[in-house]
Design a protein around this nucleic acid. Structure first.
Length: 778
DNA sequence: GGGGAAGCCATTTTT
DNA sequence: TGGCTTCCCC
């Protein structure tokens, strides 16, 4: 188990039981250390499976950890407390739903649901949504929850803020009434329950001997507070004696902190060291992923950040290929160049799925997609709607949620008239009014309405009620099939000429449910099984690795989970759907070139990586400049991008780019000035420094000694024939943005034609004549 | 209630 | 420029 670890990894895995911080560089075997640590703790009898709490951010990371752990040890990993913050909090709240003041089968609002709940609230209160945009309110509410702040903790200095606080309060009341919780609420409610309930807190503090946190640099204020609570540190803050809690192993990389914009606090790392009096800090700097030139580039770049904890990656794999840098005339040419280069790589035997094209913002993918598509090159774009977020799936889920909880007004409104059944906005408004005056849910308000509107609504409610009765006692699969039929959803989409995909997705939903049920340890995430089965165990903690060993170390007579009927498979599945939105399935499985933003590339690695749009304003992004530490975060983002590459890294930028229907003339990114010259190879000639335009360097031939490396397509063949654009060196021209200038040089033909022009006020620029609007000045 | 026109916005994203 | 939401009319 320990044999193949390097000295730092070994030290991390075998740390004594005390708080520790692992600074794990990119590609340093972080997941391996985490899983081996857990396995080692259990194998040496220091802890039983139930004494471990391991937290990740994504389901993917949690699954990965469980898979690896399961491969190392014969334990029931599904029963262990390994999961995402949200998944674990959900499990905790299900176990103690009464104390948390929730219905047992509470449902979870995803971001979309939350927004529609807020819109509904505003409408009901007749609030001007121009003055209080729902999106902004959503951001306000979630932001405060993630800071651990309830409405009563907030004070408003101005009228608008006071109103927002009030709306926050009313929103929470609405959720409570309807028996739903949003994502942030899962965490906040868990945190508060731990904080306010001494037996519960002490129970879990005693239980979790080892708390391990992955991607610690991405934790927000509330997540850190939650960890402190479980680790018995929060009492110290409040002047109480420390709890008898376990030790915390935080694993993270401050250089890869790229989520400040959504509340992540890198500062938690330093706070952790201080507040937990961490003595053990281990740096994992040995990189097993990339070649030297790539790592040198990453190291040199990140050097430019201040306030780092300090870390330098090293590798044993020689320098490898240089990092190739390419300048193109337009985003179109850049994309075409990528395609040509990829063709060559594929010819040389690189699998397409080992080639990634990364970009700073999603808008950049379009040109690249077009070029790949025209070239007939299979590709896959990450991002976009995921399976459980698709409209037809959300409709089906809404019916299913109504079966579980008829007071779920969000779901009620989503499908009350879908498929269309003659219930218009007027009827719905009447119904909402009635619900408000009676202080009840929409479902319950239906019976108070009369007339035509009332009868249609009654029919709808009856339909759902009938479905509920019909499906009682059926298997999950049967329930869903029944609902797809009985709701009219399937029929509706089958009748739609363009509904074929949606029908297919609905059928896929049945499959998803089926595999959810048959999956070993079904529903563990949603059901409080570990506690039900073992939480009350009075038997002494067993040692070793008996797969059926109790999951709790100490006898726990004091805290019992709330009992009641077991959570239904349907409720469990609905929870699963909310917590795990599923893959974005587009073109999955194929051997395809991978397209994604730098953010979504975090944690992944590829043989060959292209980073496009390396331009000022794009990367670093212009909007980042107004943010505090914005540039440093952009630099970390670039660091993440670079360290995705194993063998080959390409950086490209373009003089011209079509953005929002406007041509932009960007300078190459300042990050080039921060990369080590000798690790780079400029495929197109290196022009003078950042922001200096290209004075002095002749644009000559791009003769590249290619070695066995595929040569870049020569982007701009020199112009010999008479140019069609009618420009000549020395001519004066006028440009709408840069004003008057003098033509220095001309090259290229047709669409590729470009000119180097000296603008007295803006410096020397290369402009693509197909794009730039130039008028000759007499 | 559906469809077309007009308006709005445009880093980054997981749960 | 283009994708998405909202609004208005039939």
């Amino acid at each position: 188990m320990l044999r193949q670890l390097n000295p730092e990894q070994l030290a991390a895995v075998t740390l004594p039981q005390e708080h520790a911080l692992i600074l794990a560089g990119a590609g340093s075997g972080k997941t391996r250390v985490l899983t081996t640590r857990i396995a080692w703790l259990m194998a040496t009898g220091q802890v039983s499976p139930g004494g471990i709490l391991a937290v990740t951010f994504t389901n993917k990371a949690a699954k990965e950890m469980m898979t690896r752990l399961g491969a190392m040890l014969p334990v029931n990993v599904r029963g262990m407390w390994i999961g995402t913050f949200h998944g674990l909090c959900n499990r905790f709240l299900r176990a103690h739903y009464k104390l948390a003041a929730l219905p047992q089968s509470f449902q979870i609002l995803d971001t979309q649901d939350q927004l529609s709940a807020i819109k509904r609230l505003l409408k009901q209160l007749n609030i001007d949504d121009e003055r209080f945009p729902p999106k902004q309110l959503q951001w306000y509410i979630s932001g405060n929850k993630e800071e651990g702040l309830r409405p009563h903790n907030l004070t408003g200095r101005d009228e608008d803020t006071r109103k927002k606080i009030e709306l926050y309060r009313l929103y929470d009341e609405q959720c409570q009434r309807e028996g739903v919780v949003d994502f942030a609420e899962l965490l906040l409610r868990s945190y508060e329950l731990l904080r306010d309930n001494d037996p519960i807190r002490e129970h879990y503090q005693r239980r979790f001997r080892h708390i391990l946190i992955d991607e610690f640099q991405d934790t927000n204020t509330l997540q850190y507070a939650w960890i402190k609570m479980l680790a018995g540190k929060a009492e110290v803050d409040q002047g109480l004696p420390p709890g008898h809690a376990g030790s915390v192993l935080a694993v993270g990389d401050d250089d890869q902190s790229i989520y400040a914009f959504r509340g992540a606090r890198v500062g938690n790392m330093a706070d952790f060291v201080r507040e937990f009096e961490v003595r053990q800090q281990i740096k994992l700097e040995q990189n097993y992923r990339s070649h030297g030139n790539i790592l040198d580039s990453a190291n040199a770049l990140i050097e430019h950040n201040s306030r780092r904890l300090g870390k330098n990656l090293r590798t044993d794999q020689g320098p490898g290929e240089p990092v190739r840098v390419v300048e193109q005339a337009s985003d179109f040419a850049e994309a075409q160049w990528m395609v040509d280069e990829i063709r060559q790589l594929v010819r040389d035997g690189v699998p397409r799925k080992e080639i990634a094209i990364l970009y700073r913002s999603n808008a950049q993918s379009r040109v690249i997609e077009t070029a790949l598509f025209n070239a007939g090159m299979p590709y896959r774009v990450y991002g976009g709607l995921r399976f459980f977020e698709r409209a037809e799936i959300k409709h089906a889920l809404a019916y299913l949620r109504l079966l579980e909880n008829r007071h779920d007004d969000t779901s009620f409104l989503r499908v009350v008239n879908f498929p269309p059944r003659g219930i218009g906005a007027r009827s719905i408004e009447q119904l909402q009014d009635a619900a408000r005056t009676h202080g009840c849910s929409l479902h319950d308000a239906v019976s108070s309405l009369s007339g035509k509107a009332g009868s249609n609504l009654t029919a709808f409610v009856a339909r759902v009620d009938v479905l509920r009765e019909q499906t009682a006692g059926l298997t999950l699969r049967e329930i869903i099939e029944q609902v797809l039929e009985g709701s009219g959803l399937l029929e509706h989409y089958k009748a739609d000429r363009e509904g074929a995909d949606r029908v297919e997705n609905l059928e896929e939903l049945v499959n998803a449910a089926e595999s959810f049920v048959t999956q070993e340890g079904f529903g563990r995430d949603a059901v409080a099984l570990p506690l039900d089965e073992h939480g009350l165990s009075q038997s002494p903690a067993s040692q070793g690795l008996d797969p059926n060993a109790p999951l709790v170390d100490t006898p726990l007579p004091d805290v019992a989970p709330d009992t009641g009927e077991t959570l239904s498979p349907l409720a469990a599945f609905l929870t699963h759907a909310a917590l795990e939105a599923g893959d974005n399935q587009a073109q999955a499985g194929q051997d395809a070139v991978q397209l994604m933003t730098v953010h979504s590339a975090k944690g992944l690695e590829f043989d060959c990586v292209f980073i496009g749009g390396m331009e000022e304003g794009l990367f670093p992004h212009e909007n980042s400049m107004t943010e505090r530490d914005g540039l440093e975060e952009e630099r970390r983002l670039m660091y993440v991008a670079i360290t995705r590459a194993r063998d080959r890294l390409y950086l490209s930028f373009s003089q011209t780019r079509l953005l929002h229907g406007q041509t932009r003339y960007n300078l190459r990114s300042r990050f080039f000035e921060e990369l080590p010259e000798d690790a780079l190879k400029w495929i197109t000639p290196r022009q003078s420094g950042f922001g200096m335009g290209s004075r002095g360097t002749a644009p000559g031939r791009f003769g590249i000694e290619a070695g066995n490396f595929p040569s870049a397509a020569a982007p701009l063949p020199p112009q010999k024939a008479a140019p069609s654009h009618g420009l000549r060196a020395g001519m004066k021209v006028f440009h709408t943005k840069f004003g008057e200038g003098t033509v220095n040089l001309l090259e290229g033909n047709g669409d590729d034609a470009r000119a180097q022009i000296d603008f007295p006020r803006h410096g020397v620029k290369w402009l693509a004549l197909a794009v730039a609007k130039l008028t000759p000045v007499p």
